[in-house]
């Protein structure tokens, strides 16, 4: 019988092959998908997050753990749907219109997926309406926006306004990030949160979802 602690350990080591094998085994052992998710995969990622914050491990280690988590999620996803387990949260993410810089945004997307969220990545140069339409279409509760240029930062405000115009304020929360963006700017444009880096963005998203 595959132990959930063993799955956690494999996630922490970033061993995707083991996580794949162990989750399949756990499923065969009739452990519930939610149980495997919470006490195996997410528990492992929790430890990874703590070690990352303590500078005991670094970004590549976190991303390897995230990759291992995906391997487990691929096996669990159909069962979670069948069991009616709601997603941890759906997030629409993209670099705002006029901005083609997506390195930071990509990192945030990887980290969010690694934390177990469903991420719909719209890429770069994304129009405000596109963020909001996609969120409505997929029932996403978070819109994450990135900008590297000061000239494209105002687009973030347009997205926030668009969310309000569509009557989604409070239901769809917004988070912003990127090199020129700050906590103050986020407050000015009425965004719900600001993440100073990818790991912090994951923490903020978790807070927004728990508030919802």
């Amino acid at each position: 019988m595959a132990g959930l602690a063993e799955i956690s350990e494999a996630v922490i080591r970033g061993d995707d092959e083991q996580v794949d094998r162990l989750t399949k085994q756990a499923i065969a052992d009739e452990i519930s998908a939610k149980n495997i998710l919470d006490d195996g995969l997410i528990a492992g990622m929790g430890t990874v997050g703590e070690r990352f914050k303590a500078h005991e491990i670094f970004l590549p280690d976190v991303l390897m753990a995230a990759k291992a988590m995906y391997a487990g999620m691929d096996n669990l996803r159909p069962l979670l749907i069948k069991e009616g387990v709601p997603s941890l949260g759906k997030i629409v993410i993209g670099t705002v219109q006029g901005d083609l810089h997506d390195i930071g945004k990509n990192l945030v997307a990887i980290m969010l997926k690694g934390a177990g969220f469903d991420v719909i990545d719209l890429g770069n140069d994304v129009a405000p309406e596109s963020f909001v339409e996609t969120a409505k279409e997929h029932g996403a509760s978070i819109i994450g926006m990135s900008a590297l240029l000061t000239t494209t930062m105002p687009v973030m405000k347009s997205v926030v306004e668009c969310v309000e115009k569509e009557g989604l304020a409070g239901k769809v929360r917004t988070i912003v990030g990127g090199a020129p963006v700050s906590k103050d700017f986020a407050a000015q444009i009425g965004a719900d949160a600001y993440g100073f880096d990818a790991a912090n963005a994951v923490d903020r998203v978790k807070c927004l979802i728990s508030e919802n």
Partner: peptide, 30 residues
Amino acid sequence: HLLISKHTRRYLRDEHYIPGPVVDRANHSR
């Protein structure tokens, strides 16, 4: 990106000196 490339993971700690928290390398907001 090469963040999880084997090459990155093999040589990260040898190629890059990663200082302790005394040396500030956080972004301004952080």
